[in-house]
Write a protein that binds this DNA or RNA. Sequence first.
DNA 1: AGCACGCCGACT
DNA 2: GTCGGCGTGCTC
Length: 661
Amino acid sequence: MIVINVAVAVPLNKTFYYLPPENISPQDVVGKRVRVQLGGRFITSYALEITQSEDSNLKLKPITEVIDDDVVITDESVALAKYISENYVCTIGEALACVIPPAMKKPKRKIKDVEIINEESLPYGFSLTAAQKNAVDKINKSVNSNAAKTFLLYGVTSSGKTEVYLHAIENAFKQNKSAIMLIPEISLTAQFVEIVTKRFGSAVGVWHSGISAIEKYNLFMKAKSGEIKIMLGARSAIFTPFKNLGLIIIDEEHEHTYKQEQKPSYDAREIAFWRAKRNKSSVVLGSATPSLESYKDALENKTELINLPERIDKKPMPKIEILSLKNKPFGGSLLTIETIRAISNVLSKKEQVIVFLNRRGYSPSIMCKNCGSVYQCPNCSVSMSYHKAPESLRCHYCGETKKLPAVCPVCKSKEVSVFGAGTQKVEDELGKLFPKAKIFRLDGDTASLKENYVKAYKGVKNDRYDILVGTQMIAKGFDFPRVTLVCVVDADTSLYLPDFKSSEKTFQLITQVSGRCGRGSIPGNVILQTRHPEHYAITHAKAYDFHSFYKEELLQREKLFYPPYCDVAKIAVRNRDEQKALQDAEKLFIFLDGLAKSFEIHVKLLGPATPYIAKLHNTHRRHIIIKGDKKNILKLAEFVQNYKQLPGTHVSVEIMPSDLI
DNA sequence: AGCACGCCGACT
DNA sequence: GTCGGCGTGCTC
Ligand SMILES: [Zn+2]
Ligand SMILES: [Zn+2]
């Protein structure tokens, strides 16, 4: 009997046989998405192939509906799904749900094409610097000869990486090859879309998680047919089904957003390498602060390093000054006298200032002056942040919002004090210090209105604001020629988080935010306020000495046995009941430990440990960490997927997570 | 993962 | 005597 082998996005390590729907030949079903009934529910699935079923005692169900008119599943998508399922602990069906979105939907009527954007390719305004030209030549040569090379484009901030990308894309385009360009997050798409569509018009598509189901369908089909040749987007754009894929660019390759946190926990960079190998395409990883692993690969000649060591027009890097807060008592003004003087000086010259603090709200906690108790979120094991405007207490993890209590819930004292500082407090202080200055604050709270992001961008660009205060969202992407001073209020926010990457993250953040100034004709200055002026992440960032930072950080990683000296996986055990979470994590640990010993799988098992934030959304969590090499980790992780002895407890596996917090 | 089936407490 | 709690096991 003829049956169809269907991959379903459920955590069951097998595919399922279905009968073709009545009146439809099996050939018209394979390669398409289908709706099938499995157990009690209907699931969008993937019809892989026609098979002959033996006289089985299976009671086969027919496919309920064929979703697609045309084939959407290619050999590459199946092979890629297989790769994902083997490397990120999931089933083929779950992996396919990443590669081919189950939700994308054909429009009812053929909608009119969006207006053809100015097709005339804009003249290239600037000639390339020698370093840029060298970079472009190397990349083009690899693309044109199908050499499938991976490049690490290490270029300091404002060294003109974008121009290199555009030239490389143009070359691929002229060769009739397609290109994927990834950027770290959706909020950065707008500026790139403008630049890229100006050059390549209607050949450009934009793809990210916010794109509608219908638009995704259109983009998918256009990419597949070759009507679109360039896809610009966030992480999931790496799956764009181009046939003639010549070039993949990953901008800000060090960003953790390229790692998916939920199952399957794939890394877009790894998917890029896989696709590049298969399609003989070239990969460009771009960054001013490469990730440790990418830089290591380049130094070991596994990939090719391309340097852009200078800013365009030989503009100087901003001078970074460290202001130690070591002897400054907690509380009091956030800004040192020196910082205030520097801001004042810049404002008097009608230049602009960026003030950076990676923490939103007014203060991260409030404390009773009488008994010292801190107001905690009822759902999470974190303190609630104090917000002015509108005055409230908010949990930054679950969104819980409360009125500020009139008296301390513990001792009924009326005296409460704010503890620590966020961007609202910075804005407040700056307002008092510089009453004439026009200040805009851009953080998670103000940017929740999308127009505020644009307002900040255009406002600073057009000199409508003197000071921009913000969190990490102002640290990347912005190009403001008249900003000549960056003040980092607290360089230490990420320095002592209990994570092996905290130094690397701190170095990256400082370097990125420092890069926001001195991009125009006037040189820039940076002030770093820190309580740890001697820390190597800070001293090397000050000196723009990435290489020394890299060496020192590698030593630390080697000493403590962390990546890139080993691979890791993070197993999270979650339950609403604290005791159950504890007990089940312990059970799972003993189970894994026993397996590792009896099967002689050489890994190091750590835990179960309480994560940095033990309770989130009323769910208690425990972590088990596996260290070792990827093969062994995956062998053991496979058992986790099939261990179903913990009813009510949720267990997730993340391979090579972006943090171990 | 989700959903049905099934066996025990408490509620009209 | 029925409604619903969630432990167990199966899904082409
Ligand atoms: Zn109190
Ligand atoms: Zn909370």
